[in-house]
Amino acid sequence: MVRRTAALMGVILVTSRSFSDGDLDLVERAARAGHRILRGPAHHDLDELRSLLHGADAWIAGTGPVTEAHLAAAPKLKVVARYGVGTEAVDLAAARERGIPVTNTPGANADAVADHAVGLMLAALRFVPDGDRRVRAGDWGVRRGRELGAATVGIVGFGRIGQGVARRLSGFGSRVLAADPFFPVELVRAQGAEPVPLDELFRAADVITLHAPGGQRLVDAERLADMRRGTVLVNTARGDLVDEQAVAEALRDGTLAGYAADTLDGDTAAHDSPLLAADLVDRVIVTPHLGAQTTQAVDNMGSLSLDDVIAVLRGAEPAHPVPVPQEMR
């Protein structure tokens, strides 16, 4: 490796746990470009990050908050690269005011999350986790499930992940509905799905899978009341999309047959979520945000975020800039 002097090196703060944890050595890639990786806590606690931010030239940020206060603590910062797709935790307006571009990694984990969403559908429809628990307790009694190919599946949000789910469902033979106000209906049809309004999707689907941005409530008591009895709801997007208390009540009264999610509202702080109640264990499946945790997705997210950081630090434009919404300008 070519040695570089400290004066030429940029410091890249990384607060994503899985960065360079796949098959690719991204720490070495950064070093070859003349930069040093500095690790920080994934929760982004400002007191713990302050000294690290002070010397950082770039920040590859995980899912924790990136606030105006964080940016103010980083006088040398030239770019924030969000390790993932969602940017709702980043103060885009504050970054713009400071002239700091924000990037993300669109599509890097789409296949991984689409796989996981379909896996959760199958697990819920066929009672896989409950069956495993029963066998371990000596109970070989069976619960009759449903086939995915016989179901009408509604996809809420038809971006890269939603489209990936639709492609996978084509192999099962499911009827696929899609609701996305920002995606052209002719392109929805070209992907093998039927474009429908959101309310119609919730009324017509046997399985509903959420792939919409956070910061909105899509599933509440009113919408649950309009669903088909026995619907399965899957959420690999954001916990705040659903009213968890309303979902728990719908599971108890049979409106929902199952809820399978890769997230809870508040995530690791959600130990008291109503969906974790003991009486719902046979109808609720929760995984710990592992939808994007495949070797391939980790390599993709790390590569895209690091490449954008290196580009900015050498004075070039990043390949995946996040635009500032009009209302923030």
Score class of each variant (00 low, 15 high):
86 G>W: 09
86 G>F: 07
86 G>S: 12
86 G>C: 05
90 V>M: 12
91 D>E: 11
92 L>E: 01
94 A>F: 13
94 A>R: 14
96 R>M: 13
96 R>L: 13
96 R>E: 14
97 E>N: 13
98 R>Q: 07
103 T>K: 02
103 T>E: 00
103 T>I: 08
105 T>A: 15
106 P>R: 06
108 A>P: 09
109 N>Y: 08
110 A>N: 03
112 A>D: 05
114 A>C: 10
114 A>P: 04
115 D>S: 07
115 D>R: 12
117 A>T: 13
117 A>V: 05
117 A>N: 07
118 V>Y: 08
118 V>A: 00
118 V>N: 03
119 G>F: 00
119 G>W: 03
119 G>R: 08
119 G>Y: 02
121 M>N: 02
122 L>K: 15
123 A>I: 13
123 A>L: 12
124 A>I: 09
125 L>H: 03
126 R>H: 00
127 F>Q: 15
128 V>H: 13
128 V>L: 13
128 V>Q: 13
131 G>A: 08
132 D>W: 06
133 R>Q: 02
134 R>D: 11
135 V>W: 08
136 R>E: 09
136 R>H: 13
136 R>Q: 12
137 A>D: 10
138 G>F: 01
138 G>Y: 05
140 W>H: 15
143 R>I: 14
145 G>F: 01
145 G>T: 04
151 A>Q: 15
158 F>E: 05
162 G>W: 00
163 Q>P: 10
164 G>M: 05
165 V>Y: 02
166 A>I: 11
166 A>D: 06
170 S>K: 15
170 S>Q: 15
171 G>S: 05
171 G>P: 02
172 F>H: 01
173 G>N: 06
174 S>R: 08
175 R>T: 13
176 V>H: 01
177 L>V: 01
177 L>T: 06
178 A>W: 01
178 A>L: 06
179 A>R: 10
180 D>S: 03
181 P>W: 03
184 P>V: 06
186 E>D: 14
187 L>P: 00
191 Q>C: 12
192 G>N: 00
193 A>H: 00
194 E>I: 12
194 E>D: 14
195 P>G: 07
195 P>H: 04
195 P>I: 04
196 V>S: 01
196 V>E: 07
199 D>K: 10
200 E>V: 12
202 F>R: 00
202 F>Q: 10
203 R>W: 12
205 A>C: 08
205 A>Q: 10
206 D>F: 10
207 V>G: 02
208 I>H: 09
209 T>F: 07
211 H>G: 06
214 G>T: 09
215 G>E: 02
215 G>N: 08
216 Q>D: 15
217 R>E: 12
218 L>C: 03
219 V>T: 05
219 V>S: 08
221 A>W: 11
222 E>P: 00
222 E>T: 14
223 R>Y: 08
223 R>Q: 02
224 L>M: 09
